[in-house]
């Protein structure tokens, strides 16, 4: 009797998207199916019998856990910085719902971009392009998680934060992923708004309203997103180009992108220092914000001066990208700590 040798034969995908073990290549099966309809029916049947259920780790990967960590952190900072009290259980629920909403956005994004992800080395190993998961399962997971997170947020916290959460999921999954990203090099400028919502939602979870300070938090992330992503896009240019995504370096060139990175770092610095300037924080935050922004602008200046076109020579871009993550974590951590002491 024949038996499978899963370790020796790599998995392939059948036309319905199921992962199959030990079956001949899709091309060969497709070619044979053209002349032999009964073979086609049998392979469909076989595919369903041999469909492997996706591993729970694949669902976890679908939520983009690394992006989610930044979302959770900024949301928590918004929640801690807000005036007023929130019960720890409700606060925990609010942050959990924001995290689930971010995960749902990530799942919907990966569902829609599965074909594009397959063309980029950085994303080719994600569950959908790698064939480890059925596409429909990803869509159902994303929609289910969205509804669950918004519903629980509304019932347990308040409907303003639930509405903002629903809008941010819609903005990321529909406006950014489906509309902006494949169509305009300004995709991450406008799309950056989706990532800027979490501290506002955290704030609204406590106060039930939105004032100037959460708007400034929104602006900080909104203006931070272009230099952060464009520095990545500069040294990942070939990857985005291969996938046909119109990132600024592919469309307008590296010089324009470097100019834009430097240009955006100034209003970002102004927005970051503004909470101190309007007297909403103490000198602790003011000093940290000035120091962090000086480093950011210096690194952006180094990027602006760089003329390298090969990724290997783009150390300033890689340094700015790495620092930009540290910058956002540091800025929001000091902001939350400062406000907690001050308020």
């Amino acid at each position: 009797m024949d038996t499978f040798q899963p370790a020796a034969i790599p998995p392939v995908r059948n036309p319905a998207g199921y992962q199959i073990i030990g079956v001949s290549s899709p091309y060969r099966r497709r070619e044979r199916a053209k002349t032999d309809s009964s073979f086609f029916e049998m392979t469909q049947h076989t595919a369903q019998e041999l469909a492997l259920p996706a591993d729970w780790r694949d669902f976890w990967a679908l939520t983009k856990p690394r992006v989610m960590s930044l979302v959770v952190f900024t949301a928590l900072c918004g929640l801690l910085a807000a005036p007023g009290d929130i019960h720890p259980v409700i606060g925990f629920t609010a942050v959990l719902c924001i995290a689930l909403g971010a995960g749902a956005s990530g799942a919907l994004n990966q569902w829609y971009e599965a074909d594009v992800d397959a063309k980029m080395a950085r994303t080719a190993k994600r569950p959908l392009p790698d064939g480890r998961m059925d596409k429909d399962a990803a869509l159902q997971f994303g929609i289910g998680l969205s509804a669950f997170s918004v519903g629980i947020m509304g019932v347990a916290v308040n409907w303003l934060s639930a509405g903002l959460l629903a809008f941010s999921i819609f903005f990321y999954a529909i406006v950014y992923t489906m509309w902006l990203k494949p169509n305009t090099p300004q995709n991450i400028v406008i799309g950056g708004a989706a990532g800027a919502f979490p501290p506002v939602i955290g704030w609204a979870a406590v106060t039930g309203d939105i004032t100037l300070l959460p708007v400034l938090l929104f602006l900080i992330i909104f203006l931070w997103t272009p230099p952060h992503f464009w520095s990545l896009a500069l040294f990942m240019k070939s990857d985005y180009g291969a996938a046909g995504i119109p990132m600024l370096p592919n469309v307008s060139g590296q010089k324009t992108t470097r100019n834009q990175i430097l240009a955006y770092s100034f209003p970002m610095a102004a927005a970051a220092i503004a909470p101190f300037a309007i007297g909403a924080t103490s000198w602790v935050y003011g000093g940290a914000a000035i120091a962090l922004n000086l480093v950011f602008v210096a690194l952006a200046f180094a990027v602006w001066r760089n003329t390298a076109s090969e990724a290997a020579d783009m150390k300033p871009e890689k340094r700015l990208f790495a620092f930009s993550i540290l910058y956002l974590f540091g800025l929001f951590a000091v902001f939350a700590a400062d406000r907690m002491v001050m308020v």
């Binding site: 009797m1 038996t3 499978f4 899963p6 001949s24 019998e49 041999l50």
Partner: peptide, 13 residues
Amino acid sequence: IDVTVVGNMSAEE
């Protein structure tokens, strides 16, 4: 070219 077993799964699978 077609290494397939229909209906019967191996112990490993």
